[in-house]
């Protein structure tokens, strides 16, 4: 089971560090990261393995959303199934 974390907003120092810190806390293993900075807008997509988490998915999702609010970024955490459903036939 995997989840996709997306982070969108103004670039600043240490975003990747802080987001992956939350993942580590919940034992969600980061599998892949892509990021780009376009005209100071930061967009990062992170794929994490959630099959060995030490707490429920909702707690991590809430914490990441709160982190986003704190940093002025929009952070979404979603189960991979939704992307499979919408973009794969």
């Amino acid at each position: 089971m995997r989840a996709v974390i997306t982070v969108i907003g103004n670039d600043n120092v240490g975003i990747l560090h802080k987001v992956s810190g939350v993942c580590a806390k919940y034992q969600a293993n980061v599998i892949e990261v892509t990021q780009s900075v376009l005209q100071e807008m930061f967009a990062m997509i992170m794929m994490v393995d959630i099959s060995k988490m030490n707490a429920d998915f909702a707690s991590m999702s809430d914490e990441l959303t709160a982190l986003g609010t704190e940093l002025g970024l929009s952070i979404h955490t979603m189960h991979e199934d939704i992307f499979n459903a919408m973009h794969r036939i």
Partner: peptide, 20 residues
């Protein structure tokens, strides 16, 4: 990215649909 990974454009499209 290998085949099992997602296309960034698709992911951002879904996020945009929901958020905006």
């Amino acid at each position: 990215m290998n085949n099992s990974m997602f296309n960034a454009t698709d992911i951002l499209e879904t996020i945009r649909m929901i958020q905006d």
